[in-house]
Write a protein that binds this DNA or RNA. Structure first.
Lengths: 245, 245
DNA sequence: CAGTTTTGATAGCTTTACTATTAAAAACAA
DNA sequence: TTGTTTTTAATAGTAAAGCTATCAAAACTG
C-alpha cells in the first residue's frame, strides 16, 4: 500500500502552532489519538499526554489552547480526510447512486484505504469520531466555535454528501438533514452495536458490523430519497387528526 | 391545566437517596435543570448548585454520587415521562399510523402537555436532553452504567416506538434503529437549526421549528417504513460494483 | 422528650486546567 | 564556526473542580 504524505489544510484557528510542522506536533497528534481512545475524552488531559510523549504540559499548550480544541482538530482532520476519500473514490464515477453507495462506505469505516498517514492511526481516530464526536459541538461555546470556523470541514463534508443526494433526486426536500443524519446514524449504530445493542438492529451475531451498517444506511438513505409521499399520504390519508391538543 | 402529581419510577442505582422524597431532593432536581441549562454540563458543578439553592456540596453528594449520575437521572426522568405521554396519548387509538404521528409529536417537543410537574420544568429539561443527552452514554463507563440499568428507560422507550413501527409494517427490518434514530435525529435537527444551520434543512425563516421537525421526522420515518426495496434495487440494479476494494 | 435521621458548616485533599519563568537544546544564518 | 533565534524542557505556582470526613444543629419520629 502506498504511503502518501498527506498534509491536510486545517483551519488555523484550531491551533496555536501547526502540529503538522514539527516532530513534537506530530507526536502530540499521534499520541493524543491513542490516549483519548484509551482513557476517553473526559479522563484525558495534557499532563497525561505529556508524560506519555516524555514532554511537558507547557509544551503541548503551545500547540493547542486546550483539550477541547485538540479534539476538534482531530475531528476536522477526520472530516477533511473523509472528503478527500470521497473525492478520490468518486472521481471517475458518473452514476450518483454509485457515488452515494461509495460515500456510505466511507462514512461507515476507514477500511480499504488506499493510503496511510504516518502520524495518524485512522482506525483509532475513527473510534474517537464514533465515541466522542458529538462532544465537539455540544458545548456552550458552539456558536463561538462555529464563528471561528471549527465546523467548516464538517459542514462542507455534509454539503458534499447532500449534493450527491440531490444528483439522485433533485426534488428531495431534506438533503442536508439526510447527509448529517447518515453520518450521525452511522456512528451511533456502530456505537450502539457495541455498547447498547437494544438501540440498534445491527448485531454481532449477524456477522460483520460495518457491512450491516452500510446496508442499514443504504436502506434509510434510499427509503428517504425515493419516498413516495403521495402514496404515504394516501395510506395515512383518512385520519386528519390533531395530535393531543 | 391540571396539576397532576407525578412520581416516576426511576432506577434506584441512579441516586444515593431518592430526591423525589424530600424538599432538598426536589430542590436539587429543580435547580440542577435550570443551572445545567444556564452553564452547560461541563461548567455545571455541585458547588455552584449548592450556592444557588443555599445548601452545601456535601448535602448534594448525599443524593447523587456525581454530576454524571445526576445528568443520567434527569434524562431517565425525561425518557420515563415520554413513555407516560405516549401511553396516555395513544390509549384509545388503534391506527398505528396515528400512534406513530403522535409519538413523533412527543419526540419533538413537550408542547401541548396535559400536566405539569411542580419540581421539573419540562421545557428546560427538553433543552438539556437536546443539548446534553448524548453525553449520558458517550463515556468510558457506558458498559458499567448500562449494567447498572442507567439506560433501561431509554431502551424501553425505543422498544415502545419500535413496536408501533412494527404494527405499521411487521416486516420492517430496522425497527430499533428507526426508533433510536427518530429520537436522536429529532434532537440533532432542533439543535442544528439553532447552532449549526447548514447541517439541517429546518430553518427559522420557514417558520415554526417544531412543526418542521415533525414533518421531517415523518418524512424519514414513513420513507423508511414504506421503502420499496425491490424498486430501489431495480433502480440501482445495473451496477453490481464493489466499492473501493 | 429521647432518639434517629437529615442537613449545614467547615475543613481538607487530590486532580485538573491552566500560566509564568528560565535555562537548555536545536535549528539556522552569516 | 559562532552568534542568533526559535523551540523545548524543567520547574513552580494558582484557581477551580471533584470529591471525603467530621461534627454539630435542626428536623422529624415514636
Amino acid at each position: 500500500m502506498a504511503k502518501i504524505s498527506v498534509k491536510l489544510d486545517l483551519n488555523e484557528n484550531l491551533f496555536q502552532k501547526d502540529p503538522q510542522e514539527t516532530d513534537l506536533g506530530r507526536n502530540i497528534v499521534r499520541h493524543s489519538i491513542l490516549l483519548i481512545d484509551e482513557l476517553g475524552f473526559e479522563k484525558f488531559n495534557f499532563k497525561k499526554l505529556a508524560e506519555r510523549i516524555k514532554s511537558t504540559e507547557a509544551s503541548i499548550y503551545r500547540y493547542f489552547e486546550n483539550k477541547h480544541n485538540l479534539l476538534i482538530y482531530l475531528l476536522n482532520w477526520y472530516w477533511e480526510w473523509m472528503k478527500v476519500r470521497i473525492d478520490f473514490n468518486t472521481i471517475n464515477i458518473n452514476d450518483p447512486i454509485q457515488k452515494l453507495d461509495l460515500t456510505i462506505n466511507i462514512i461507515v469505516d476507514t477500511a480499504n484505504r488506499n493510503t496511510t498517514i504516518d502520524f495518524v492511526d485512522e482506525d483509532i481516530l475513527h473510534r474517537i469520531v464514533v465515541a466522542e464526536g458529538t462532544k465537539a459541538y455540544h458545548t456552550k461555546s458552539v456558536d463561538k466555535d462555529n464563528q471561528d470556523g471549527f465546523f467548516l470541514s464538517y459542514k462542507s463534508l455534509c454539503k458534499k454528501v447532500a449534493d450527491i443526494v440531490l444528483e439522485i433526486n433533485p426534488h428531495f426536500p431534506y438533503p442536508r438533514t439526510l447527509a448529517s443524519n447518515l453520518i450521525e446514524m452511522g456512528n451511533n449504530n456502530q456505537y450502539f452495536a457495541e455498547h447498547l445493542p437494544r438501540l440498534t438492529d445491527i448485531q454481532y451475531s449477524k456477522g460483520n458490523i460495518s457491512e450491516q451498517a452500510i446496508e442499514l444506511l443504504k436502506y434509510f438513505a434510499y427509503g428517504a430519497i425515493y419516498a413516495n409521499h403521495s402514496k404515504i399520504k394516501q395510506k395515512n390519508g383518512q385520519m386528519k387528526f390533531k395530535p393531543h391538543s
